[in-house]
Amino acid sequence: MKKTSIIVAVLCTSMLTGCVNSLSGNTYSRSEARQIQQVQYGVVQSAVPVVLEGTSGIVGGATGAVVGGIAASNIGGGRGKDIATVLGAVAGGIAGKQVEETVTRSQGQEITVRLDNGNLVSIVQEVGEGPLFRAGDRVRVLNGNGTARVTY
C-alpha cells in the first residue's frame, strides 16, 4: 500500500507542474495567434522585480486530499482507521492547496514604460524565459484583446 501512495504522490505532483502556464512577454496562448495587436514604442523608465502569486485551484487540494487519505488509511484499525483516513484527507487537502500555490508561483517584473506619445504605462509580466528589462531599454508595448506585453 505504501508503494501505491508514493506512485500517486509522484503522479499528482507531475499533474501540478504540468498545469503551469507562462505569463512572460514572449509566450502567447493559442487564442492570441493571428490576432491584431496595437504596437507602441517607448523607453523603460523602471523595471522592478515582483512575485506573481501561484494558482490555488482545486487540483492541489484534491490531489493532497487523495494522497493524505491514502497515506492515513494505513493508520489504526476499525473506526480509528476511518477517522485517520478522513483527517488525513483534510490535512492533505490543505497541504496540497499550499503546495500548488508554491509550485506555480513565479518571478516577474513590473515594467514602467514612457511611450513615444508621452503616456506612461505599467505592465506586470513573468520573467520566465523572457528578457529582463532595464531602465533605458527601447521596447515595444503590444496591446490587444485585453492583454498587453513588453518586448524588444
Rank of each mutant, 00 (worst) to 15 (best):
I111P: 04
T55Y: 00
G68C: 09
I36G: 10
D137A: 10
P49I: 06
V121K: 05
A47V: 06
T13S: 04
E32A: 11
G69I: 05
T55Q: 01
R79L: 11
V150W: 07
N145F: 01
I111C: 05
Q40E: 11
C19P: 02
T151K: 00
N26I: 10
S46R: 12
S122W: 05
S31I: 02
G88W: 02
E110D: 14
A62G: 15
F133R: 05
S31F: 09
V127Q: 06
V103R: 03
I94G: 12
G61A: 15
I7P: 00
T4F: 02
I83T: 07
Q40M: 12
V39S: 12
A135G: 12
V121D: 08
T13F: 00
G130I: 00
G77S: 12
A89P: 04
T102Q: 07
I83Q: 07
K97T: 15
D82W: 06
A84S: 09
A95Q: 10
D116L: 04
R138C: 00
V141I: 10
V113K: 04
R79D: 08
V51Y: 14
K81A: 12
I6A: 03
G88P: 02
V66W: 04
G54K: 13
V99C: 09
A148M: 02
V43T: 14
I83G: 06
L16F: 04
G64S: 08
I58R: 04
G60S: 03
V8I: 07
L142Q: 07
V66D: 06
I123P: 01
E100R: 00
K97H: 13
Q35E: 07
V44N: 04
N143Y: 09
Q45E: 14
A62H: 01
V150F: 11
I75S: 09
Q37C: 03
S24P: 04
R140Q: 14
V48N: 15
V51R: 14
T13A: 07
N119S: 15
Q35S: 00
G61W: 14
G77P: 00
V150Q: 05
S31E: 15
